[in-house]
């Protein structure tokens, strides 16, 4: 008998092994954004990789779409506590943008239209663990979910999967991004429940 919340029973204990601690499963696709949804036309869309020395390389929408594409299926976990199983995406693995880049950096800052940023260790976006995703469930990704293209880094809380992504900036020092500067955890591993500063 717990001393808290008497009479609370909760839902059937299913899916426990697929659900990180403190999450609940949802069928819908809720939205977390700090401000208005930017409208980014594919005609002017670019994706730019900037190294720590300032060297840049950019791709237009058509160039990005001409790169080898992957279909990928993941469970995703939002820090606001919903998890969604078996989400279907199509996009370009980040290695395709980073393989030819000369860098000594250990970190990346993902940048987005509208000014949003989020920081990740470089190794977390290599080796098929992160994508630029443009298609969700067979349809072009809608603006409120980050379309025309967002980052997809499913092994971290979903705020790391920057919506409206515009590029990656390689950095020698770790630079906290937008949510990481206003209370969210710097790394954001859902299985270690790294939600907030101090977790």
């Amino acid at each position: 008998m717990t001393s808290f919340s008497p009479g609370f029973h909760g839902r059937p204990r299913a899916l426990a092994d697929r659900l990180p601690p403190g999450q609940y499963p949802t069928e819908s696709f809720p939205v977390l954004s700090a401000g208005p949804t930017p409208r980014v036309p594919t005609e002017t869309w670019t994706f730019t990789v900037t190294t720590e020395t300032g060297a840049t390389r950019s791709w237009t929408w058509d160039e990005m779409m001409a790169l080898p594409q992957q279909e990928t299926v993941h469970d995703i976990h939002c820090v606001t506590r919903w998890s969604k199983f078996d989400t279907h995406w199509r996009g370009v693995p980040l290695t395709a943008f980073l393989d030819d880049v000369e860098t000594a950096a250990d970190h990346v800052v993902a940048e987005a239209h509208g000014g949003y940023t989020t920081n990740l260790p470089l190794e977390d976006v290599l080796d098929g663990r992160a994508w630029v995703a443009h298609t969700y469930d067979g349809y072009p990704l809608s603006p409120e979910h980050g379309g025309p293209a967002r980052l997809l880094v499913p092994h971290l809380y979903f705020w790391k999967s920057a919506k409206w992504v515009s590029g990656l900036r390689l950095t020698v020092e770790d630079e906290p991004g937008f949510w990481e500067s206003v209370g969210y955890h710097n790394y954001g591993d859902p299985w270690r429940e790294q939600r907030n500063w101090g977790d």
């Binding site: 717990t2 609370f8 029973h9 909760g10």
Partner: peptide, 14 residues
């Protein structure tokens, strides 16, 4: 807010 059932199951919402 975190609720705990008698079997230790917990649920949290904001």
């Amino acid at each position: 807010v975190r609720l705990t059932a008698d079997d230790g199951y917990q649920a949290v919402r904001s």
